[in-house]
Structures are given as C-alpha cells and as structure tokens.
C-alpha cells in the first residue's frame, strides 16, 4: 500500500490508534461502518481520481486494507490503460 492510500484511509478508522495499518487490517474491526465506507468511496474517487468498477463493489473489497488497495490498484491500472488507448 502506498502512503497516499494509507493517508486517505486512516482517518476513516477510529479504532486504529497508534497501530500500523497493514494489508491484513480488517476495516470493520477498526471502526469502518457503512456511513464511513460510503464517505471513503467518495474520498477514493475524488482524492485518487479513480472509480471502482461495479464488480469490485462488494463486502470482500471493503473487508481489509489490502483488499481495498488491490481494487484501487486495479482501477488505477484500468484508468491508465484507457488513457494510453486514447493517446
């Protein structure tokens, strides 16, 4: 996980405390509820400039920091591919 993603995700995890965020960190256990998850989705779309595809909109994607990071990476790769195709 890169630092911008960690910086974006951390404020949505009130129970994280001083512990490091790892790919195995379970978001629900760290205080992520539906309302926060929706705001996080907005933050990903607005802050990272990617839109998660419909097939990644499920509870598995939002289960851990690592699963969400993987979906964000897939969306970023797809967006980059689109940009190259358009160029």
């Amino acid at each position: 996980m890169n630092q911008p993603f960690i910086d974006l995700l951390t404020p949505f995890l009130p129970n994280l405390g001083d512990r490091p965020l790892t790919e195995d960190s379970r978001l629900h256990d760290l205080g992520m509820n539906s309302m926060k998850a929706i705001d996080l989705l907005f933050a990903i779309e607005d802050g990272l400039g990617v839109s998660l595809p419909d097939e990644d909109l499920n509870d598995t994607t939002f289960a851990t920091a690592g699963s969400l990071w993987a979906a964000v990476q897939r969306a970023q790769d797809a967006a980059e591919g689109d940009r190259r195709a358009a160029a």
Binding site: I38, D39, L57
Partner: peptide, 12 residues
Amino acid sequence: GGTGRGLSAFAA
C-alpha cells in the same frame, strides 16, 4: 448509476 451504487449514490 451502476449495480451496487445505490446507497452511495443515495448518500451523495
């Protein structure tokens, strides 16, 4: 708006 975007679109 896409499958699975009901509640997030509603919130927005």
